[in-house]
Design a protein around this nucleic acid. Structure first.
Lengths: 159, 159
DNA sequence: CATAGCGTTTAGTTCGTTCTAAACGATATA
DNA sequence: TATATCGTTTAGAACGAACTAAACGCTATG
């Protein structure tokens, strides 16, 4: 048990961890970002480890994930060879960008799936005319849905 | 190996399974829905089991999940005591409703978190004025973000 | 040059999810 | 009433994700 558990930063960080896991993200990533977000000064890896009661390995791995997202950045602190980090406070922008990126990637994969399935139907015909008609209709509908979602995403990607 | 693996329905179903797992859903649920979506006739549990090469337990559990979502429904077939199912073809509506519901639930939980953390700061003051100011600013920012997302969701929930 | 203090990498463990096989209860049929 | 055929439930296995502890390599400093 950490005697600092009542510390405001830590409380906030842990809530960010819960938030992250609710959206099926890694909760440690959420904790780390939350801690940095509520720190007026840059934080070293060892401080993160102590405050969040996590292992150094986990802190190291996950802080670099956050870094790759542009959610935190390394900062120089004089007279120290430790790595210090601070949060980019524009949380919403970060989240938004990540959500959009993720959706784009998955939608592209979806498109490939649809095309592949479609091609497999176009090949030589093993089905009755009626059955083939049904397949084509549903496939067409699937394609339409894909496009609706895609258009919606485009709309988002703007502004 | 299933000799029917080249069957169009099955190919489609498996792709729906992949799609589902891409969006961190249960992939069997995706397969089942995909199969029913591409079936002109209702499908029995045993047919699902055979065509998708899954266990009866899994089929039973997952088909009832789909049923609870309103994505498939039981239909009566004369002279049979099997349960037959067919898909509600309005896939997009189903997805949309589930997404909105899920977001609503999680946002409410988020709101509770923010309030809780906020209250813990409002309590007796253990921080310097400057530090407290910083905390309050960031907390305020967090609240604003919550509201932006919430408003966006409301907008969606309409139309 | 040895040591201490870093962050990273790795090997192994834990935990949650979801599957399967099998037991089960219910119902229709011979 | 005995049996066969359903769907459901349960116990256990498999798997993946993510953590920890420890080993490691690097660098600065005494």
């Amino acid at each position: 048990m950490n005697k600092e558990k009542n510390n405001f930063q830590i409380k906030f960080a842990n809530n960010m961890g819960m938030l992250a896991s609710r959206f099926s993200l890694n909760s440690t990533v959420g904790q780390l970002y939350g801690l940095l977000y509520m720190s007026p000064e840059p934080v070293s890896l060892n401080e993160m480890v102590k405050k969040l009661a996590i292992s150094k390995g986990s802190a190291s791995t996950n802080i670099r994930i956050l870094e790759s997202w542009g959610a935190v950045k390394k900062v120089w602190v004089d007279n120290s060879r430790k790595d210090y980090y601070e949060a980019d406070p524009n949380t919403l922008d970060i989240i938004k960008q990540r959500v959009i990126e993720g959706l784009h990637r998955r939608l592209n994969e979806t498109k490939s799936s649809i095309d592949m399935v479609n091609n497999s139907l176009e090949g030589k015909n093993r089905y009755s005319a009626q059955r083939e008609q049904f397949y084509k209709k549903r496939l067409q509908k699937t394609r339409k849905m894909y496009e609706q979602v895609n258009d919606l995403l485009e709309l988002f990607s703007k502004d």
